[in-house]
Computed example of a mutant assay.
Amino acid sequence: MLRFERAVDDKTLEDWRYVHNVVIPTVSLSLDEVRERTQRNHLEVAYLGDVLVGNCTVWPPSEETPAARVIARVLVEHRRQGFGEQLYRRALDRARAMGATTFGSVVLSSNPDGLHFALQHGFVETERYVLPGETIPWIDLQYQDTAVASS
């Protein structure tokens, strides 16, 4: 069973950073950059016992971006064991608690496992783009939570 911790102290922030940097090596973040992200996003890490498995991020909805963005990342050696599902469900629950009824995500195109996971969970691709100074496209995805939207 996974144990989840909000990334708030140096250990959990460093663990969150490690997963991010392994899964998204083109955008390596420093610990200070991760600390800054905690000011606007909800960051969590997941452990199996004491072993780091993955992380999740929730970007809350805002006036500029009404869809919450949910991101689940799992280290390669822990994929295909249901951990991504747990992280994803946890991120969705957090986003709903923030008032979101629509959700987006983003996947680096060099992560076919992540794209497959998102597509299997009802997300659809909306845009591909390359950020300035980068060479690998990002994929934006959108999902409508019909259970919340119809109630």
Rank of each mutant, 00 (worst) to 15 (best):
M1G: 12
L2S: 04
L2Q: 01
E5H: 10
A7R: 03
A7W: 04
D9R: 07
L13N: 01
D15I: 02
W16E: 02
Y18E: 14
H20E: 08
N21F: 00
V22S: 00
P25N: 11
T26P: 00
S28G: 15
S30N: 01
S30V: 13
L31M: 05
L31D: 03
E33V: 14
E36S: 07
T38V: 12
H42I: 12
V45C: 02
V45M: 00
Y47N: 10
G49E: 12
G54R: 09
T57H: 01
E63Q: 11
E64M: 01
A67S: 14
R69M: 09
V70F: 01
V70I: 09
H78C: 00
G84R: 03
Q86D: 01
R89S: 06
A91K: 08
D93L: 08
A95Q: 02
A95I: 05
A97M: 05
G99Y: 10
T101E: 11
G104S: 15
V106D: 14
V106G: 14
D113P: 10
L115H: 01
L119K: 14
Q120T: 12
H121K: 13
H121C: 13
R128T: 13
Y129Q: 05
P132W: 00
E134W: 00
E134R: 06
P137Y: 07
W138P: 00
S151C: 05
S151G: 10
